[in-house]
């Protein structure tokens, strides 16, 4: 029997769902292997169901989203967070702890009582997340590999090494040694060091390596390289502001 799958989105740009749709060569194999119950970005035909696997994109920013997420969790055997918003709260979390949502609302709408909203938080702030496919957006190949593992009944193999690994395997010179603020050492690999391979310093879009990233050491190295603390903090916060060690950075 094919596994029942739902693909959902909350606050974000829907880029991760789009990456799934962008799997043009593999899409037919993929939908053929799954019993796709819900994927509103691809089809308005939604079937109420329980799910073997729910793939969830986006961060949680409203009470309604929180409620819907909790319901998805109840109906799903496995819940997989896809993309940086679902994994870390996304770019919209980058001011968490610095600027209150009410202040932001007031600045944009002139009133702080337009909607009831939360600070942008990852799915894991509200429900148990079984697996994370990181990235902004996710990597298509990584999604396919994960889908294949799940189809076999295994949890996928998580990438837990930094961007530097794939960067060195491609024999790139180090951008930090060229004086750039590259977040490669703190950031989850799996992108084949796409940006550093083109000479562009890593902005950390695949999120921080949980429990591993050496934030304090990086702060010291960046400070010694002459980067201003505000700039370093803003860079670290862009995709991983909710990571406790980054939230604390002054």
């Amino acid at each position: 029997m094919k596994p029942k799958v739902g693909i959902f989105g909350f606050t974000g740009c829907a880029g991760d769902q789009l990456m799934i749709l962008n799997l043009e060569d593999e899409l037919l194999d993929l939908v053929g292997a799954l019993d796709l119950k819900s994927f509103t970005m691809a089809s308005s035909a939604v079937e109420e169901s329980d799910y073997d696997v729910a793939f969830v994109e986006g961060s949680i920013t409203t009470p309604k989203q929180k409620q819907k997420l909790e319901e998805i969790r109840k109906r799903s055997k496995l819940l997989v967070a896809i993309g940086d918003c679902a994994a870390w709260g996304g770019v919209q979390a980058s001011c968490n702890g610095i600027l209150k949502v009410e202040e932001k609302m007031k600045e944009v709408y002139g009133s702080d009582k337009v909607w009831e909203i939360y600070e942008s938080k990852p799915l894991s702030a509200y429900v148990k997340v079984d697996f994370v496919l990181p990235g902004c957006p996710i990597e298509k190949e990584e999604f396919l590999r994960a889908a294949a593992s799940l189809l076999r009944g295994d949890l996928p193999e998580a990438v837990d090494y930094p961007v530097c690994v794939e960067c060195k395997l491609r024999e790139n010179g180090c951008l930090m040694l060229e004086g750039k603020l590259c977040l490669g050492p703190l950031t989850v690999g799996g992108c084949r060091a796409r940006c550093p391979s083109l000479g562009v310093d890593c902005i950390g879009c695949r999120g921080v390596i949980e429990g591993e990233a050496r934030i304090k050491s990086a702060l010291q190295v960046f400070r010694e390289a002459g980067f201003k603390p505000d700039y370093v903090r803003a860079r670290l916060r862009m995709f991983a502001a909710n990571y406790p060690e980054i939230l604390e950075v002054k």
Partner: peptide
Amino acid sequence: AKCLACGTCNLVCPTCQCYDVS
């Protein structure tokens, strides 16, 4: 103290022999 645990030292080493299999 400053180590970023990035793995570069191993990956550029002519005698590091460890590999991972997937």
